[in-house]
Design a protein around this nucleic acid. Sequence first.
DNA 1: GTGTACCGGTACTCGACCGTATCGGTACAC
DNA 2: GTGTACCGATACGGTCGAGTACCGGTACAC
Lengths: 209, 209
Amino acid sequence: MTSQAADGPETVAASRRSKISREREQEFFDAVLEQIRECGYEAVTMDGVAASTRCSKSTLYRQWKTKPQFVVAALRSRRVSKFEGIDTGSLADDLREVARAAGRWSTGDTKLLQALGHAVTQDEELAMALREALVHPEIASLNAILQRGVERGEIAADQPALEYIPAQLFGVIRARPVVDGEYADPDYLVRFVDAVVLPALGLTSGRGT
Amino acid sequence: MTSQAADGPETVAASRRSKISREREQEFFDAVLEQIRECGYEAVTMDGVAASTRCSKSTLYRQWKTKPQFVVAALRSRRVSKFEGIDTGSLADDLREVARAAGRWSTGDTKLLQALGHAVTQDEELAMALREALVHPEIASLNAILQRGVERGEIAADQPALEYIPAQLFGVIRARPVVDGEYADPDYLVRFVDAVVLPALGLTSGRGT
DNA sequence: GTGTACCGGTACTCGACCGTATCGGTACAC
DNA sequence: GTGTACCGATACGGTCGAGTACCGGTACAC
């Protein structure tokens, strides 16, 4: 979706003819996102990003007016779902696969979500960028997976638990660190899917145990 | 006013004989927690708290060495579960009641959780205080509710979904703002319990299997 | 009434960071 | 070779907040 006309360095940065290559730009973005994960949004400094990428602060300010705009740009460079391409032919297996992917993804981008968690309530544009970058793509591909399950007749389209699946998965990923003090790894998430998500959807042979 | 009772102000603040009454101390705590909810942990200022409580910054620093220690003390003053006292005699109704309580509670303390979400990853003591103040009490009373359900024979003690209930509830509360862009109100949470939690526990009457 | 110790207020030091300005160097156009 | 425009480095101004120091006022002890 929205495949950005992929020719020349026509990225966000390059409305003027900047000497910053796209790879270089991505380095900046990676650096700032990494700093956010490590230190939190408020603690990220332009000096820090400049230092870690060995560029000048001036260079950053030439391309992006302010720190929030820079961060937003960095987030927008990441609109790819980690669940894309999952299609095993079985809804239960798809969901287990999603759990595994989410678990791998989790330590990285959960930190991002966590770190931006509050900044987002202060800056609406940042909130939109975050949702577009990390949430909407995942929800879209997740919904596609569920939709295929419905079409295959594995579950009813009006299954009441259906609409809560995305919130449920995002939820445990965010809740585990607070509840148990550790990140939600793939193993935990797969067990969660087996123990809760599938039974809630009526997809298990009862509570077999 | 309020010449202290015989046992004296035995709170954190008063290892020395401070003139700060316990009510006054709680005002400080309320103020700083409110500021955290509003502006985030990093943006909280001692000047701000002092101003909003009409006390001197010196007074705060006399009682607590640093800002983190002050916040930790404020958190520790709040170790009360909002689920305490729920006991309808039916596990399903208990859980619905928990959902309602959590929904009311959510806008307030979810903001706290959100606002401290990242600061917690930097300061271990803060993390512990947060868990002890906002998470453990709720989990404890929630587990008591589940335990009573087991004892009444409503569910099996080895129900695999059991151990995930706390994470599940905390999860959707934290996920809803990100997924849907709005807080989890009581109505939403009750519907969630009916659509997901109870079916996952095998407790539904509406939809068989 | 005198001493003590804490309160509130204010002013201060010190450091951090945002965003700007300035400067020499250099890739590229022509 | 000359001009242009961007790069990196550095330095600077301005703001803001943590934590300290000092002050006069006052409640309480004895």
